[in-house]
Design a protein around this nucleic acid. Structure first.
Lengths: 132, 132, 132, 132
DNA sequence: GTGGTCTAGACCACC
DNA sequence: GTGGTCTAGACCACA
């Protein structure tokens, strides 16, 4: 069972964002979008820590926070799994709430830079297409 | 001459973002957008510090960083002014570069949440109109 | 592991040159000359501060500036290390650039004092030999 | 008598060196090298201040220091002139003493950068020739 | 353990 | 008046 999932997270230690936070946010989003389903098992702390050359305590902290948030559940002697009864319905409205802060940040900057709306939308559209 | 400029910055000490960084970013944007013109004088360290009930060193740190960045220039014994030769031309392309990181963040989240593009664009458009 | 590195910097609090600047310049030169190699760890802020009876913030300021300059890199929760991709290659040409300002200063003074070139070169040669 | 001397000083407000110090040092060197002769009159404070767009008080301070140093003498109602009995003989040894600090700075940097002596001398020689 | 941020208050140099 | 430097000590976030 060690082949679990090698390509789950994208951790960047130099992004300014704390590592534990990156883990939390990414797993939360994956659960919200259904990429991780209720009951599904997660890689062990040691596994992730090794994979990204990160301190195990950092991953452990992330898992603990996710458990406190009700996103994950701890199964003694086994590991972590996605919580069963989950507030994170795949409902679109809910998911849109997640990106509100990012939109706020963006809009603030746009206004202070005096960038026309069309240009902003054009740039975002372009970037979204590229990701496809 | 006391009416100099009362309405310049919007500092929020509880935003998680360091105060000196808020100052840096906002002034940088104001220079980039042309709200602050080359050669224009800035409020003194003590002025801003008093206005926002912040320690002068905090503002001073921001000014120093902005000088190191080439955004501001120091005039000894007089104060700070917007740097003359400025990379931050007001042209649109340059300004769009400033919001690239914010767009990246947004797009990453959108993809991990599996939100359809139209919904994202709709939400942003809505938010932009509101700000008007 | 306490024998880490005791003999690194030469700080003189009365030289007129700000302490943080002395630290910056010396570390920059050590990196440029290869005395400090890419990835190598640096003494902690508190370690240096204690060693030279200086306020930790002063050293911290130096480290921050060196990070902004791309000379050092921060490893969160661990400390500072020499940046990996470093403009400060050890090639001779690059290092010669570092002493250009000092040469400029010298030459200006020499010209204003009307000192013959041979005399200048002789004096410098003498001083260089002495240092050996 | 207003045509005195338009091209005397080279003041750079952004060099980091205080303006009054630049004035002091340059005039001192000119006296030492004989470019300014004993009894010779100097431009008025206002003249220099206007020429370089500098605060008159700054020039005044420089003149005062030079007077205290015995380099200049104040003639009431007339202005400043180069002091008559002057320690600054044009003797070569004396003049060489003036550049000792600049040489020290240079040598320190050279040693910390591990630059070979020949390269240093070559670079200086090159720069000296260029100035010719 | 690491570095980062902020404060309050001192002193300095420059203009 | 301006900004710069430093201190002593507090608290926080990260690993």
């Amino acid at each position: 069972m060690e082949i679990e999932s090698d390509l789950l997270l994208a951790i960047n230690p130099n992004s300014g964002v704390p590592i534990y936070r990156q883990v939390c946010e990414q797993i939360t989003r994956m659960v919200a979008s259904g990429q991780l389903k209720a009951g599904e098992a997660l890689p062990s702390v040691r596994q992730i820590a090794t994979q990204f050359a990160v301190n195990p305590m950092t991953i452990s902290k992330a898992y603990s926070l996710l458990e406190a948030d009700g996103v994950l559940a701890r199964v003694r002697g086994v590991g972590m799994k996605v919580a069963q009864r989950n507030d994170l319905e795949q409902n679109l409205e809910e998911r849109l709430l997640f990106i509100t802060p990012a939109i706020e940040t963006l809009v603030t900057q746009v206004e202070q830079l005096n960038i026309p709306q069309d240009e902003v939308l054009k740039a975002i559209k372009l970037r979204l297409e590229k990701g496809k």
